[in-house]
Structure formats: C-alpha cells, structure tokens
C-alpha cells in the first residue's frame, strides 16, 4: 500500500497510454492489415460481439486466421519487416497504444491505491442498515472498517448471511454495486483506502477531474 501518488500521477502524465503488445499466438505467415499510427477499435456491441479492427492475418496450414484488435487505440511499433514472413509463436508484431481517458486514469489509480473487497459468490448484496445510514450521511469522515466488521449482507436463496470483512483496516472510498444488485463472483464490492491517505487521494482525484483534458 506504500504508493507514491505523486509519482503515479507524473507517470500517467508523461505517458497517458496503456500499451497492449500483440504477439503471434502461434507460428505462421503474417500479413498486416493496418499501418503505423492507424486508429483501431476494440470489440463493440452490447455483448462485445462485433469484433474489433482487423490487425493482421496469420496463416498456418492453409488456415488464414483473422486477428482483430481487443483494444481501441493507435497502432505503434508495427514490425513491417515481418510482412509475408514466417513468424514463431510469441513473436511481437505490433503494439496498440490505448490512450487513457480521465475516468480510466482515476480507475487505474484507485485500483493501485485501494484495497478491493470482492464478492465471494454470485448473490445479491446489501450494506447493513448501520452502514447504510452512515454512508447516506455523506460525511467527510467516511465509513471506517476493521477486520471482522460485519457491514455486508449476502442474500442467497432467501437466506441472508452477514459477511465479516477480511483485509486491512481502512475507509470505504468507492462502492461498486447498488443495494440489492446481483453481483457475480469475484466482482468488486467496494474499495478501501488507508486512513492516512484518504485526504491525499481525494485531492489527487479532484485534480485529475478538473485538470485532465481528454
């Protein structure tokens, strides 16, 4: 949890990208379908069922396989010298640089800073009435949680179970679900911030919200 937020912010400012390296999944002859610097799109549609931009075709044993982009971004480090040649599995072919927007940066920072408490199984989740009344007060203090505290109710098959919190003590900073939502197993329920870092995190997030230009 010992993270220097200033360094993190500087890092994002100097390189606001997430690099997704695209390697050959198996051997074959590669034929690129994009150019350096080209904008590509990731899967789209409500169920992400529409494939992204075609990046390259990898042909092995007369089986031309269409490899599409899983991320939106810009094509970089395209190894054009490999065009039409046989490549081995794992050979780096290109990079898709995905420019992070404001919300994504906040999300990345929070994921690094916060401790995420996840749903142990697929069920409906509620905060306990005490926790709810505290959260609704909208105080600057936030709800402090210590290991063993029962602040979450898991409702499954008409049976409510109080879940004891397990993890480092902290203050609930972000809640990822709505009361009574059906949450999948391992999906995040809430994120905790170490008590000392809370004002600083809030300040950084506020700065990103106001200053960051998409």
């Amino acid at each position: 949890m010992d993270i220097n937020l200033n360094d993190l912010l500087r890092q994002f400012k100097s390189h606001p990208y997430e690099d997704h390296h695209i390697d050959a999944p198996h051997t074959g002859v590669v034929s690129f379908k994009v150019k350096e610097g080209q904008e590509v799109k990731g899967p789209s549609g409500q169920w992400l069922h529409k494939p992204g931009t075609l990046l390259y075709i990898l042909e092995r044993e007369k089986n031309p396989k269409r490899i599409t982009s899983s991320f939106s971004g810009t094509v970089a480090n395209l190894r054009t010298q490999l065009e039409g040649t046989f490549v081995h599995a794992g050979e780096r072919l290109l990079t898709v640089q995905h420019k992070l927007n404001r919300d994504e940066i906040i999300d990345r920072i929070l994921r690094k800073v916060l401790f995420i408490f996840r749903a142990p199984q697929r069920a409906r989740y509620f905060f306990t009435p005490e926790a709810i009344s505290f959260l609704e007060k909208d105080t600057d203090k936030g709800l402090s949680v210590a290991p063993g505290d029962e602040i979450i109710i898991m409702s499954l098959m008409k049976r409510d179970t109080f879940l004891p919190y397990e993890g480092p003590p902290g203050i609930i900073y972000k809640v990822y679900f709505q009361q009574g939502d059906l949450v999948e197993q391992e999906a995040p329920l809430f994120g905790l911030c170490p008590p000392g870092k809370l004002p600083f995190v809030q300040k950084v997030i506020q700065r990103i919200r106001t200053e960051w230009d998409d």
């Binding site: 198996h26 092995r60 044993e61 007369k62 089986n63 396989k65």
Partner: peptide, 20 residues
Amino acid sequence: NEDRTVTCPNADKYGCRDLW
C-alpha cells in the same frame, strides 16, 4: 479431402487447438 487446418469458433473462449 483437404489438406489444411481450421480454427474452432470457440478457440478464444476454450483455447481449442487448430484442427486438421
């Protein structure tokens, strides 16, 4: 009667290997 391989449409999901 063709000497080639094909990819299972579920390859991404289940990691199926190419089939001769």
